[in-house]
Write a protein that binds this DNA or RNA. Structure first.
Lengths: 217, 217
DNA sequence: ATCGTGTGTTCCACAGTTCAGAACATATGT
DNA sequence: ACATATGTTCTGAACTGTGGAACACACGAT
């Protein structure tokens, strides 16, 4: 009987080591305790991950997540096909509205910005591709959870960030929400009631993105 | 003779698979070609990585980097000790200047924002922690490369982003630049000559951060 | 519809790697 | 000086990962 959960026991253990140090750096002894692996095994696996840059040692010699994960994480975000497919429609939305436009996908209990175009205005809201945001704040999060008004879009004003308004629409594959497209900007420009002005644009953008990504509606 | 480079051959191979798909999604056959592993091995390793979320399948069944890497990458960025140590000084800088403040470290040929506090102004520049930016654009990048004026700070106006000005100072450990602290905001508020107003503040912040992080000056 | 080829998936005997207790090295506190 | 804790390395045995083969499925040509 194999003792693996994924089919490759060493990968299971290596991920266990990464997960152990995800929230705080750990000295070897703490790593042994947290993972349940023997001291020699913990040391060998952690050293191998360090060799590849997935772990590093902090100033006190504790193991912590390494810089290679930053670049892999960034590459992972670029690899969403919907982000690529959304490019033209996102550019149209940004140009038509003059405001920053973003595309979000859901990742467990959070949302990730997988594509982001900034408004040409000197002052604008900026969400970097790769940013991780909550689902329960902001129109993009509520669009992802399906909490959408009868007109097909969601509005938030000063909800996730003071001074910022946003309007979002969900993107469906069949009946499943797979992404959300948003415009956002300063309340001063979008007003406290941005729905009528921007709602139709984000709904159209959502439809265009679904088409471009080949999603069934 | 072992055929490993890190001490754990399976980890070497698993990283090889991740590296193979870093830049573009690969079908199994392409993965076999790119890695040189046998078909069965490639499939087994990729499936195990997929199980743990480090890979996923795109709509065409190709292997591509998975969402777990996004969250690990984000956690990796939070794990810089200087980011933690910089918290109070960064807050002081933001409060004293009223502008967004960021801390950058160098990662190869790029810079990573490892801590970020936003201005209370309704309109402000925002750099998400985790954002990856170039070294050759913006005052933060030039501070990291040591390209600093005689007053100890760097200024950029409309260089990395139109409408944005920033001022940065390097943070040294001994004679080595290990980080850079920046303030940034709209040119309209920072003016086209933000150095005299903000330069001394970032230089003080850099010194405070170096002290807080226990760096030798 | 049939056939050949290509691609993805699974099996399983065995070759080779990983494991972990022991030993060693170093650090720390008393 | 000593005891203890922590980090690192060694190495024989046990176990896992390997990869050729087989199978399943998709696709293009005829």
């Amino acid at each position: 009987m194999e003792h693996t959960i994924s089919g490759v026991g060493v990968i299971d253990k290596a991920i266990g080591v990464l997960a152990a140090v995800e929230h705080e750096p750990l000295a070897l002894t703490a790593l042994v305790e947290r993972t349940g692996f023997s001291r020699a095994t913990s040391h060998r696996l952690a050293s191998a991950l360090e060799f590849h840059g997935l772990l590093r040692r902090d100033a006190e010699g504790r193991f912590t997540l390494g810089t290679r994960l930053v670049s892999l994480g960034e590459a992972a975000e670029r690899a969403w096909p919907i982000a690529e497919a959304a490019g033209p429609a996102l550019a149209d939305l940004r140009d038509a509205t003059g405001e920053s436009a973003q595309l979000y996908v859901r990742d467990g209990g959070r949302r990730i910005c997988v594509a982001s175009l900034e408004s040409p205005h000197g002052l604008r809201t900026i969400v970097a591709a790769g940013a991780v945001l909550p689902l329960d704040q902001g129109s993009g999060g509520r669009a992802l959870t399906g909490d959408v008004g009868p007109d097909g879009y969601v509005v938030s004003v000063g909800e996730r960030e003071a001074g910022v308004a946003s309007v979002s629409a969900p993107i469906h594959s069949g009946t499943t929400v797979v992404a959300a497209v948003s415009v956002s900007g300063p309340i001063e420009r979008l007003t406290r009631d941005p729905g009528p002005t921007f709602g139709p644009s984000v709904v159209i953008a959502a439809s265009d993105i679904a088409d471009a990504a080949g999603l069934k509606g």
